[in-house]
Amino acid sequence: MLKKASLFLLIAGLGLISCSKDPISDLSTEESLVYVTNHDQAANFTQYKTFSIVDSVLVVENNRQQTALTDLDRDVLNRIITKMQGLGYKYVSPKSNPDVGINVTWVTNTYLNVVSQPLSSYYGGYWGGGYGYGYGYPSYYSYYETAESYWLVSMLDFKNPNTANKTFNVIWDAQIRGAGIGERQYVDTMVDSIFGQSGYLKIN
């Protein structure tokens, strides 16, 4: 009786393990979103009062670049404006000498992956063992292509340009990755999240 009970408990335990959720595959689209933010720790954000933003999204795919302004792009740009204003910055036109500028980029990187599929060398010892020869065989390769896209939002310091190099320093940037980044229904969540974890940007 004890053996039967133990066997039953073992089977039940295995059943529970096999039915447990996969922590990755069971994520919702919104839960799969990942936000990475960085900032220049030497920057004093309270010195900045005004901002402007690009009028379209820069689309970068490998070595190709172009601009776009889809409904999704407009949603992202408008939400960034709303969040920046909520942090205390005044929205002005690019011609009004803003203290900071916001760039928005959609980046897609495409990779060609190679997988080597050699034949088994198990029989090499059998055929070559008596003659001192090894087993030479060709390698076969299969190729597959993968692509990864993400949003990149950057804040440029127009107030303190680098006159030596004639560049504007990036004082804050954010990446948004994961499923759903190309869907309008997640725009507010995505933009709110990158600003939500960047409390140092608040000036009011």
Rank of each mutant, 00 (worst) to 15 (best):
K4C: 04
L9W: 12
L10V: 03
L10Q: 00
L10Y: 10
I11L: 15
A12C: 08
A12W: 04
G15H: 00
G15Y: 05
L16G: 15
L16E: 07
K21D: 09
P23L: 03
S28T: 15
S28M: 05
T29H: 10
E30I: 15
E31I: 14
E31R: 15
S32M: 09
S32I: 00
Y35D: 07
V36K: 08
V36L: 11
T37K: 05
T37F: 12
N38K: 12
Q41T: 14
A42E: 09
A43T: 05
N44C: 02
T46S: 05
Q47I: 08
Y48F: 12
K49R: 04
T50H: 01
I53A: 10
D55E: 09
V57S: 08
V60S: 02
E61Y: 03
E61G: 00
N63F: 05
R64L: 04
Q66W: 06
T67N: 11
T67Q: 07
L72F: 05
D73G: 10
V76S: 12
V76D: 14
N78T: 15
R79K: 13
L87A: 08
G88C: 04
Y89Q: 00
Y91K: 11
V92N: 06
V92I: 07
V92D: 00
S93T: 12
S93G: 13
K95F: 14
K95Q: 12
D99Q: 07
I102W: 12
N103F: 12
T105W: 11
T105P: 15
T105H: 09
V107Q: 13
T108V: 15
N109Q: 15
N109W: 14
N109T: 13
Q117V: 05
Q117W: 01
P118D: 00
P118I: 05
L119R: 03
S120N: 04
S120R: 04
S121R: 02
Y123H: 06
G125C: 06
G125V: 00
G125E: 09
G125H: 06
Y126K: 02
G128F: 01
G128N: 06
Y133H: 09
Y144A: 01
T146D: 08
E148A: 04
E148F: 13
S149M: 06
L156K: 07
D157Y: 15
D157H: 11
F158P: 04
N160W: 04
P161C: 03
P161F: 10
T163A: 10
A164I: 14
N165W: 08
K166I: 01
T167C: 07
N169K: 14
N169W: 11
D173M: 01
D173A: 03
G178F: 11
A179T: 05
G182L: 09
E183L: 13
Q185R: 08
Q185M: 09
Q185G: 08
Q185I: 10
Y186D: 01
Y186E: 06
D188S: 13
S193V: 13
S193M: 11
S198G: 02
G199F: 02
L201T: 06
N204D: 00
